[in-house]
């Protein structure tokens, strides 16, 4: 394939994996893929399933689009990308329905909405169209991981404070409840997801001054 011999995990490629976790995080910095990120984070389990689904779809469609990049005329690239993404999402949806039916019911329309998740379109346009398959694959994994990390952090706090459980197991001891502790019902409601993400952005930007907007 390539004439230059570049090791599979060269420094440049590792950077593709690492950067989206922090300084170019898709949710808090690039502002992509917010739509689905907030709605599924009431509980930890659907969030983890969602993060894995996005990772599969993003990595696979990044590779496919990267393989096709020289064959597709620029005028029709959007529709080609949509078809590739939609095919991957149908595969993921059918697998979820077969092996994790209850989670798939909880996620309801949000699995289908991975198609219009801006992270996927954004990465295809910005990266896969101009790079070889292997870096595109790593870029897909990295960005999906950055997305997943935020999803899991938000879900962790919402489930812990809102229901007193983690992954369905009770973690707040009964003694607390006896002493008058109450679950914060507010955390389960949709608006708090926005506030939690707002606070994550606040903390991240307070630590890294270069990300502050004017």
């Amino acid at each position: 394939m390539s004439s230059e011999k570049e090791p599979l995990f060269s420094a440049k490629n590792l950077k593709l994996l690492k950067e989206p976790l922090g300084s170019s995080n898709p949710i808090t910095v690039q502002v992509l893929g917010i739509c689905s990120a907030l709605a599924v984070t009431v509980k930890l389990k659907p969030s983890i399933v969602m993060a894995i689904s996005v990772m599969v779809v993003l990595a696979a469609s990044n590779v496919v689009v990267s393989l096709l990049r020289k064959m597709v005329p620029p005028r029709i690239r959007i529709i080609v990308q949509l078809v590739v993404i939609a095919t991957m999402v149908i595969l993921v949806d059918q697998v979820l329905k077969a092996y994790a039916y209850d989670v798939s019911k909880q996620l309801s329309v949000f699995v289908g909405l991975i198609i219009t998740n801006c992270i996927i379109m954004g990465r295809l346009e910005a990266f896969a169209l101009g790079n070889r398959p292997w870096p595109s694959f790593l870029d897909g994994l990295g960005n999906a991981a950055g997305y997943g990390v935020i999803l899991i952090i938000v879900a962790f706090f919402r489930e812990l404070l809102g229901s007193g459980t983690l992954l369905g197991y009770k973690v707040i001891p009964q003694a607390f409840y006896d002493a008058g502790y109450m679950n914060n019902g507010m955390m389960i409601l949709p608006p708090m997801a926005l506030v939690v993400v707002g606070i994550i952005i606040w903390i991240q930007r307070a630590r890294r001054k270069d990300l502050i907007e004017n």
Partner: peptide
Amino acid sequence: VPAPLRGLGITFIITGLMGIAFM
């Protein structure tokens, strides 16, 4: 607005507050 919250952060929090109002 506190500097790190400017732009995206405050927009999220305001949307959350609007959501509470809509509830």
